[in-house]
């Protein structure tokens, strides 16, 4: 079991309120991702759940029981840290065994769980090494192994992939997702990378300045962002946001069109501009379009290869059913 409920939780550092009153329920077995720009309070929120920080007011329930005043050790949660936080003076085996040693699990059971975790994480050959002798990806796996063997009610991940290089990150992303499918344990995952959020989450919580901007499945957020901030934050490349007369034409203060929802046509496009940078990836082509009179720059994504170069005139047609409209407060107009 691993349902986590936050009720009217706030956090102040001195006089500064970093988390205004916040309500959130994370269902048992759900993979929830907290995402937002740096300084949005997502790590603080995770540390409040872990118990590493006291909350200023409110209640945290774990499986319906009040855990607000319980020490981190007794909450039954496991955490994977950004820096992995492995114990440098212990072997991999001892690192993984540490939480079980603290909990007084008997030796045979310890060995069984270590074997199991090591096999699942491809660490069998490294059990007697020190963390210093491992690569970044291996350290990451040890940190996960240390979390698994506790059989926690929920896993907490604090930007666990941010210290890995790009290729490794994609691999570890898959491994963590597979782990979740296999264990079906609640996971709470903090990241600033919206691609991680989109690919891994059952539920995404978008945070800004301690406030929840929107909660929903990745596709909910992609299809119907509740406001301009979420619209701009979710999706890569970013949604094009256009204000002024063109927005007014759609009865909105701001309209947003994703780069993949703009078609390039030969002539007579609704919009036209001049190609600045053209990024030819083969599978896709990205155009940075200037001088459209709509915004500083529009990004357009076209599948496959399109032969337009720097300085060429480009004609564009936004898909009418994919235009998001926002009012002057930045909220979505249904």
């Amino acid at each position: 079991m691993g349902q986590i409920t936050l009720q009217q939780v706030t956090k102040n550092f001195g006089d500064v309120q970093v988390i205004p009153p916040l309500d959130l329920t994370i269902e048992d077995g759900e993979f929830t991702v907290f995402v937002g720009p740096s300084g949005c309070g997502k790590s603080t929120l995770l540390r409040l759940i872990a118990g590493l920080e006291d909350i200023t007011s409110g209640t945290i329930l774990i499986d319906g029981a009040d855990a607000t005043a319980i020490s981190p050790a007794k909450r039954g949660l496991a955490m994977v840290f950004q820096s992995y936080a492995l114990y440098p003076h212990m072997s991999v085996r001892k690192n993984i065994a540490f939480p079980m040693r603290m909990a007084g699990v008997d030796k045979a059971e310890q060995d069984r769980r270590i074997e199991q975790a090591a096999t699942a994480l491809n660490l069998t050959d490294y059990l007697d090494r020190r963390p210093g002798q491992l690569s970044g990806g291996q350290r990451q796996r040890v940190a996960i192994g240390r979390a698994i063997v506790r059989e926690p009610a929920a896993f907490l991940f604090d930007e666990p992939l941010s210290n890995l290089d790009a290729a490794l990150r994609v691999g570890m992303r898959l491994e963590i997702s597979e782990l979740h499918k296999r264990l079906e344990t609640t996971m709470v995952y903090v990241t600033h990378d919206q691609v991680e959020a989109m690919t891994m989450a059952d539920k995404i919580v978008v945070l800004r300045a301690g406030n929840i901007e929107q909660v929903g499945s990745p596709l909910d957020l992609y299809r119907t962002p509740r406001n301009v901030f979420v619209a701009g934050f979710i999706g890569s490349p970013k949604m094009n946001l256009i204000e002024g007369p063109e927005a007014a034409r759609h009865d909105a203060h701001t309209i947003g069109v994703r780069p993949e929802h703009i078609d390039v046509v030969e002539t007579d496009g609704q919009w036209q501009g001049r190609v600045g940078v053209a990024e030819h990836l083969g599978s896709d082509t990205f155009f940075h379009v200037h001088d459209t009179g709509l915004a500083e720059m529009l990004t357009v994504r076209v599948a496959g290869e399109v032969n337009l170069r720097h300085g060429d005139t480009i004609h564009l047609n936004p898909r009418a059913d994919q235009i998001h409209r926002f009012d002057d407060k930045g909220l979505r107009i249904q």
Partner: peptide, 18 residues
């Protein structure tokens, strides 16, 4: 000594003494 390591120990169920 990174604070995260001590926090990890706390999460792993270690008391202040441990």
């Amino acid at each position: 000594i990174p604070g995260e390591i001590l926090e990890a120990a706390r999460m792993d169920g270690a008391s202040l003494k441990e």
